[in-house]
């Protein structure tokens, strides 16, 4: 059985109007029907651009956002049905690593206080000094760091503190939301390697959420690509780059610059039109059809595609009506001469 099972998860944020008497006039469908599962000891990457709902999904899995619909099953237990006290106890087994290491640390807490807080919260008896030193050692910080405060560290070191806090209770699952994107390029690899090393040592299961597909691919076993609140493709990391099936994945991959002129000069680049539509009013049918370079005259605009496995690529799930044809090359992308942003690409207010 999978350690984590997400079924039909929806997180809608109500849009309210009125000052005294608030009424709900609509909803931002941040996460709109997501199914995922992660096996113990493996890493699932979730990629997508800002506004696709990936961070909300991560928080909703940990029950840090109110779930509108659907369920999150962790090790056989439906988290949504747990009483608050039981949920708090459950948190011991699932932890989170944040994007901005400085913002995620209380500026008034010393590192030893940061690291002993989870222990104290879950009723472990002090003194915690030994465990704090152990944790610092695990994440590659000197034990002298214990008495320092977050603002005294560099970005990479702070993220190590954040990771140490996340592993303090020996969790089984760690959700890392953009764990390296706030760091300098030369530091990112240190943190990625640390995460991998800890996974091996401690048998952790990861969900890594990021916009950087290259980093996600490096660290993940499987990758889920999100667009506007829904998963459009799930694939093993090894084959995603060679065999992307969903037009959005294809475009996303082709948009990522590769540090090699030889590759860059001959690459076929698919430039998407326009911007992400508003999640308060997603397009009908396939959510991607307004920007899709492979869009067809039928089905795309009025029929919601479901995530399905297709015969040509086993182990690969895709939510596109025309995945087979895109895969075989029967449908080719239309191309605009000038990379245009069309009028409906304006951000909805």
């Amino acid at each position: 059985m999978s350690l984590l099972e997400v079924r039909g998860l929806k997180v809608h944020f109500p849009i309210k109007k009125g000052i005294v008497l608030e009424r709900t006039v609509g909803a931002v469908r941040a996460v709109d029907g997501v199914d995922l599962s992660v096996e113990r000891g493996r890493t699932l990457g979730i990629v997508g651009e800002s506004g696709c709902g990936k961070s909300t999904l991560g928080r909703a899995v940990l029950q840090l956002e109110p779930v509108t619909e659907g369920s999150v099953v962790f090790d056989g237990e439906d988290l949504g049905t747990l009483k608050p006290a039981a949920m708090r106890a459950m948190r011991k087994r699932m932890q989170m690593v944040f994007q901005d290491p400085l913002a995620s640390l209380d500026p008034r807490q010393s590192v030893s206080s940061v690291l002993s807080e989870p222990l104290r919260t879950h009723g472990e008896k002090g003194p915690y000094d030994k465990r704090v030193r152990e944790l610092l050692d695990l994440v590659g910080l000197p034990s002298t760091a214990a008495n320092r405060y977050p603002h005294e560290f560099s970005g990479g070191q702070r993220q190590r503190v954040g990771i140490a806090r996340a592993i303090a209770l020996n969790p089984e699952l760690i959700i890392a939301d953009e764990p390296v994107s706030a760091l300098d390029v030369s530091i990112q690899a240190q943190v990625v390697n640390l995460l991998e090393e800890l996974q091996q040592r401690l048998g952790l299961t990861y969900v890594v959420i990021a916009h950087d597909l290259a980093v996600v691919r490096h660290i993940s076993d499987d990758i889920a690509v999100m667009y506007l609140g829904a998963v459009v493709e799930v694939a093993p990391s090894d084959s995603l780059y060679d065999e992307p099936l969903h037009p959005y994945t294809i475009a996303l991959l082709s948009a990522i610059p590769i540090p090699d002129p030889e590759v860059e000069d001959v690459r076929e680049r698919i430039i998407l039109r326009g911007d992400l539509p508003s999640a308060a009013d997603p397009p009908p049918g396939c959510r991607f059809h307004t920007r899709c370079p492979f869009r067809q005259a039928t089905r795309c605009h009025d029929e919601v595609p479901v995530l399905r496995e297709i015969a040509v690529a086993p182990g690969h799930q895709v939510a596109c009506h025309w995945a087979e044809q895109v895969h075989s090359g029967a449908i080719t992308p239309e191309r605009a001469a000038v990379p245009a942003a069309d009028a409906d690409g304006a951000a909805a207010v």
């Binding site: 560099s154 390029v185 240190q190 990625v192 390697n193 691919r217 991959l253 590769i258 540090p259």
Partner: peptide
């Protein structure tokens, strides 16, 4: 070379280790 070796590349096979630049820019 350090910068190039520390970022994963999409067009290369997965599983190549990242070689970080030690230390921090400070």
């Amino acid at each position: 070379t350090g910068l190039l070796a520390s970022v994963p590349r999409l067009d290369q096979p997965r599983g190549l280790p990242l070689l970080p630049i030690p230390g921090s820019p400070s």
